[in-house]
Structures are given as structure tokens and as C-alpha cells.
């Protein structure tokens, strides 16, 4: 009887020890796995960032050095690539940045106004034909720009708008970027309806509700839409390519392409310098508003 009890106790102790050993082993295994994960993720980060770092390094190198090694460290930084690149085309980049800024600012304003109007109507107001129109709006999201490009071009040409910024800006005041309607709707829907109803009982008009209830409560949504639209308009290439023929009116992406056209006498250092500068506004926005951007994609599930 007694031996049995001690056996049992010894067995239990043995079991506990084994369990502890297993736990410890599991812990080290988990630690190893985590370490391995980090090593892999860091390696991947390096691969992901390398092209960008290489472009920045190349923007500070003379051409011979760009194409002769992997080094990310210029032997002698050529900051002159930046100053010479800035004035390296028949028109200076001051003009191109000014042009891009005008187009971008106007487009962002247009998107915010027109898309929030439409989003408010779809998310909050009742009217006949809403389901049908909403379906049509969702369908336009899928339509490639190329499909509407030619008739739009003919239309704007007949109106005498080619070689102005109107074809780039006016569509944004007409909610042509349906993605933002969708994005804003997702946010508007999360605002409690009781607020609208209370305001309505107080005699607020739909516009007052939009202005005093919905908009102030969806500032993050507005900011997200503004950031995305700023980035996309800034990077936009196809529309400026078609509508702008005069080099004085070129936006930054069109100007960058001019470097490529100067084949033979192309200067890679300068081209990279200007390429890097063209990404700077986007990078600044990304760093400042990373959280909003990432949440915007997760909630709208697009792009």
C-alpha cells in the first residue's frame, strides 16, 4: 500500500518533470520559430526596399558608377545631379511641380465634394431608383478607363478643352472616381442613424445633416480619401499624356518621360534624381498618414 503511494507520488513527479521539459522545449522551439520568422521578414524587407534605395543612391552617382556595382554608397555624392536635373529639360521642374500641384489640389477638392455628396445620398437618403443607381455606380468601378477614353477625348476636343487642365479636373468634380464614393459610404454607414433622426426631428434639412452631422463625424474618411486621391492624381500618367501637348503645361510624370525620350544623351543620374524627387510628396504623405492609408484599404477592400 505504502509502496504504491510512493510509486504514485514518484510517478506524478516524473510526469510533472516531463511536462516541464516539454514546455521548455516547446518554448525554445517557439523562440526559434519566431527568430526565424524575423530573419525571413528582415531579408524580405531588404529585398523590397533595395530598388528604392538603389534609385536614391544612383541619383547621387555619376553614370559610370551607377552601372558598375551593387553598392548603395556613392563614392562621391553628386548633389549636382539634382540641381542640373531640375533645369535639365527645356522647361524647369519648378513649372512642372507647379502644374502638378494645381491639378492635384483641384482634383482632390473635386473628389471630396462630389464623392461625399454621392456617398451621403447612397448611404443615408431614400429616393426612388436608389438600388439601380447604386448598382450602376458599382459597375462603373470595374470599367477600365480605356473603354471611355476615346469618346471622352472627342467630347473634350469638341469643347476646346484639350491642352487645358479641365479634362483632368472637371471629371473629379463629377465624382468620376467611384472608388471614393464606396470608401466614404463604408464610413458613413458606421455613424449611428439616431444622430440623423434626432437632427431631422429638430428640423434640420438633409444638407444641414450632411454638413453638421455626417461630415464632422467622418473626418478620418475624408482624410483617407484626400490622401489616396492626392497620391493617385499625382502619379496619374494616362490622362495628362493624352490631354497635355504643350511642354509648359506638363505635369511631373510627363516631364520624367521626357528624360527617356532624350535617348543617347540621357543622363541617368539626373533622371534618377528627378524620379526620386517626384516620389517625395507621396513618401511624405505615406509616412504621415500611414495608419489612415492602411485602414482605408482594409475597410474598403480595394486597390
Amino acid at each position: 500500500m505504502k509502496t504504491n503511494a510512493t510509486d504514485l507520488a514518484a510517478g506524478a513527479a516524473e510526469l510533472a518533470r516531463a511536462e516541464a521539459r516539454m514546455k521548455a522545449r516547446r518554448k525554445t522551439r517557439e523562440r526559434h520559430a519566431r527568430l526565424l520568422k524575423h530573419v525571413f521578414l528582415i531579408a524580405l524587407s531588404v529585398i523590397m526596399l533595395y530598388p528604392l534605395l538603389w534609385m536614391f543612391a544612383s541619383s547621387l552617382k555619376p553614370e559610370a558608377e551607377i552601372f558598375s556595382g551593387l553598392s548603395l554608397w556613392p563614392a562621391k555624392p553628386q548633389w549636382s545631379n539634382y540641381t542640373e536635373g531640375w533645369f535639365g529639360l527645356p522647361v524647369s521642374f519648378t513649372q512642372f511641380y507647379w502644374n502638378s500641384t494645381i491639378v492635384t489640389v483641384l482634383s482632390v477638392i473635386g473628389n471630396l465634394i462630389s464623392c461625399s455628396f454621392a456617398a451621403y445620398a447612397f448611404a443615408r437618403l431614400q429616393f426612388n431608383g436608389k438600388t439601380l443607381l447604386f448598382g450602376l455606380m458599382m459597375m462603373t468601378l470595374m470599367i477600365p478607363y480605356h473603354v471611355v477614353l476615346i469618346p471622352q477625348y472627342v467630347l473634350f476636343l469638341k469643347m476646346g478643352w484639350v491642352d487645358t487642365y479641365l479634362p483632368l479636373v472637371v471629371p473629379r468634380f463629377l465624382a468620376a472616381d467611384g472608388f471614393f464614393i464606396f470608401l466614404m459610404m463604408q464610413f458613413f454607414r458606421q455613424i449611428p442613424r439616431e444622430l440623423d433622426e434626432a437632427a431631422m426631428i429638430d428640423g434640420c434639412s438633409p444638407f444641414k445633416i450632411y454638413w453638421a452631422v455626417i461630415l464632422p463625424l467622418s473626418l478620418p474618411a475624408m482624410a483617407t480619401a484626400a490622401i489616396f486621391s492626392m497620391i493617385w492624381v499625382w502619379e496619374d500618367f494616362l490622362a495628362p499624356l493624352i490631354y497635355l501637348n504643350d511642354i509648359d503645361s506638363y505635369t511631373v510624370p510627363l516631364a520624367l518621360r521626357l528624360f527617356l525620350d532624350q535617348e543617347g544623351q540621357s543622363n541617368y543620374g539626373q533622371m534618377f534624381a528627378m524620379s526620386v524627387l517626384s516620389l517625395v510628396p507621396v513618401l511624405i504623405f505615406f509616412v504621415l498618414f500611414q495608419k489612415l492609408i492602411i485602414r482605408g484599404i482594409a475597410t474598403s477592400g480595394m486597390k
Binding site: 462630389s114 429616393f127 463629377l174
Partner: peptide, 28 residues
């Protein structure tokens, strides 16, 4: 009265839809 507000807010999009999407699709 029931529809006015909705369509007023939708006006920019509606103009855009007919002029820049549906119209061009049919035109092409």
C-alpha cells in the same frame, strides 16, 4: 419632395455618369 434631396446630392455623380461613363460607353 421625397426624392428631391437624394437626387440633388446625386447630381454631380449623375452628370458624370451620363457624360463620362454611360455616354462614352455607348458612343464607343
Amino acid at each position: 419632395r421625397r426624392n428631391a434631396a437624394g437626387y440633388l446630392f446625386l447630381t454631380p455623380w449623375l452628370v458624370g455618369f451620363f457624360l463620362l461613363a454611360l455616354g462614352p460607353i455607348l458612343a464607343s
